[in-house]
Structures are given as C-alpha cells and as structure tokens.
Design a protein around this nucleic acid. Sequence first.
DNA 1: TAGTGGTCTAGACCACGGC
DNA 2: CCGTGGTCTAGACCACTAG
Lengths: 229, 229
Amino acid sequence: MAAGWQDIHDEALRRIQMREWCPGTLIPNETALAEEFGCARATVNRALQALADAGWLERRRKAGTRVALSPQRRAQMAIPLIRQEIERSGQSFSHSIIERSVTRMPPHLCAALSLNAPAEALHVRTLYMADARAFAFEDRWVNLAAVPSISDAALNDISPNEWLVQNAPFAHGTLDYSAVAASQDEARHLGCPTGTPLMVLERRTFGPDTAVTFMRLAHAPGHHLRLNI
Amino acid sequence: MAAGWQDIHDEALRRIQMREWCPGTLIPNETALAEEFGCARATVNRALQALADAGWLERRRKAGTRVALSPQRRAQMAIPLIRQEIERSGQSFSHSIIERSVTRMPPHLCAALSLNAPAEALHVRTLYMADARAFAFEDRWVNLAAVPSISDAALNDISPNEWLVQNAPFAHGTLDYSAVAASQDEARHLGCPTGTPLMVLERRTFGPDTAVTFMRLAHAPGHHLRLNI
DNA sequence: TAGTGGTCTAGACCACGGC
DNA sequence: CCGTGGTCTAGACCACTAG
C-alpha cells in the first residue's frame, strides 16, 4: 500500500521505466489506481499530473492516460544572474561599463522586439569579470519607454543585469544560444583571438505591455551550458 | 471573486509583477487568501505551489510564503528527437551510419560515465540530414552491458537516437552545450571549413542502475538553441 | 452520450521549524 | 509551543471528447 502521492508517483515511474507500462499503451484510469493503491482518486491524480508535467504521460479526458510514445524529457535550466554563476564557482565578480549612451534603437532591434515606432533606448556595453579574467561581454539595449527609471541608475555599482532583474518586472521572453566566431571587438574585450568560437546568448525580454530589453551576451571561450534531465 | 486555481495563480502573479507584493516580503497565508478569494484553502495551495515551482515564491512551513528575492526564472526546454526537430521545420529527415563497431570504451569516457571497469561498447558515428544538407554529426558510445539488444538493431532503418529513446529506459542524464571549433572530421561531414564555430551537445544518459550512453553531437553551423521563459 | 480527467470543497491530520 | 504549509479524504460537479 502506498502512503503519499510521491509513492504512487515513484511506483508509476518505475512501471514506465521497467516497461511494465509500455510506450503508447493505456494505463488504468484514476479510479482503478486509487483502488489498487488504497487511496483517494485525488491522490492518484496528483501523482499522474506530476508525471504528465514531466513528459512521461499523456492525458486526455475520455481518452485516458497513455505512456508517452517518445518519453520526451524536458530539461530545466535555472537562469542564473551572472554574479551568482561566478560566485558559486568560488570566484569574485566584478563588472565595468565600457559604454553608456542614450540613442534611438536601431531598426533591426525594433523589429526583433516587435516595436512599431522607433524607440529611445539606453545602450550599455558591459564587461563581466570572474576574478581577473573576462567572463562575458554584454551589449544591451533597454527600451526607455518601458523602464524610464534606468536613466538614473548607478550602473557602475550594480550591473545592468542585476538592476533590471530587481527593477523591471517582466512577463516573458526568449533565450537564444548559438555558436559564433568572436568579432574583433568581442575578441579584444574577452582576450581571445578573433574568430574563436563563443557561446552567444541573445535574450529578448517583454513586460506586460511592451518590450523591455534586447541583450547579446558573448561568453568567454570555454563556457558551457549544463542542463539536467 | 476568482473561480479556479488558475485565476488565483494569475492574480498572484500580477501582484508580484506589479510590485504589489515586493521581493522578499511575506504574503498573506493560505487561509487569509482563501477568504479573500472566496474559495477553499486547497485551491489557494494549488495556485501558490505552481508559483513556487516556477520560482516566483519561496514557501516554508511556519515561516510562510515570500516573494523570491531574485525571481530566478527557470527555462524549460523540450528535448526533441532530431527527426522531429527537422520534420517540424518542414524538411525531410534522413540519416546514414558512417561507422559502427564494437570495442572497449576509452578510459576517459568510462570516467565520464562513472564506470569502474572497462566496458564493451557499441561505437556508432552517424550523420543526420535535413533534406540534402547535413544537420548534425553524432559520435555515440553505448554501454552494451546496459543495452545488449542494440547489437541486433537495424540502425540503418531507425536512427540510434530514436532506437535508444524507444528501447532504453532511462532515469536521468546531463546535457552540456558548448561552442567548439569544427575538427577536420566534423568539418568534412558537415561540409564547412575546419575551425567553424559549432554548437556541440554532449549528453550522458544513465539508466536505473548504470550508464547507458555517451553522445557528442556536433550541429551544422548556424544552429540555434531556443528557450522560452 | 457516456467515460475520463480536471477541479473544487470542507474538513482533517501531520511535519516542519520559528519562537 | 503552535502557526504554517503539505497532504489526504470522500464526495461532488464540470469539461472535454471518443465512439
């Protein structure tokens, strides 16, 4: 007899992994499982929902619950602040503002951020350091209409990254990683030869109403993106 | 008045994003919120648990529920089969086995997979194609002790990728993306100059008891990894 | 239309952990 | 200690959808 929903979850997962329940097949319905495990249907429901969230099961009303054909796992990645990422590895974090200006946002960025009209933006270029080594080079555009108060922010004291996390509520956004050859500019700041393969992260962030920021972050050579499944 | 837990979830999220509930502060307890929203405590609980899972809230018994200090978002990424990734973009998928052999796994891979003893392994190198273009080049080692039946698999008909997903139950693993200069070998198969920046995915997969496979997948130039938050 | 999962309720007990 | 979230229950109604 199982006690909690976790136990039922684990037992169901075992049956999936051990092929007692095969991919594509129907499993008993909630009422039947509740009887088998000697618990309420809601408890079974909770366990099976967790498995569905994790991608092991596919559930449809009336059709019942099936083991996913391709147990397509979902990897979860925590998006760390750069500061945390560096300090967690035991190094000291610092940053320096390379450039800061207020200009009109270039058209291709307006398009990328779905902005109809040309927008005034804060343009900041920042170098992030781990101990004495360059960690990443950031090129960021902040829509001043969405976050006017950043004009007065002391970005030398707190990095643009952190300032926005703490001051700009946001609803959603996209991350886009790719492998790119270092430009002359990036190479100079990161201290590597031009053309070195770099992990580049482009990030768009949108607030409840409008676009907040576009960022391109070029990581120093050797950067890894790790995920668990 | 809110009706379902989704409504309560959305309203709470709104209050967090609008700074009505500020980072680090305590929010009302479940009983109070249940009264405010005119519903049962369990309904509030469900909504707040979802927010905690997403990283917006931190909950502790007795201490109550706080808005997370750094609303560290977690990005979820579906790990697609290569076939699906290609076919979803409207291209046709194919693959060809470049090399297939049974050998002893190299020591550094044994170490990477936490295998104590030297293991017999199936070594497969595969080129994945989207229409007529190379999509990715895979170098894979499968632990025969964990998946003996792959010896008889017709990997020319079904890709190693898919065969394993369908036949090798697994419990967990790691993904590791990095930007790497194309080796001569990779460049030849992917049809690009040596040294071109490539997105390389290294994947370790572990079954309930032991390591299943190590894979290195070099994507063709221009590959992007997209995530939503 | 009938069977299935999705959700809500009111109440209960438990486990954790500040105080 | 005792307030908080975590969970279970028994029952109910609803929403979706396959047949």
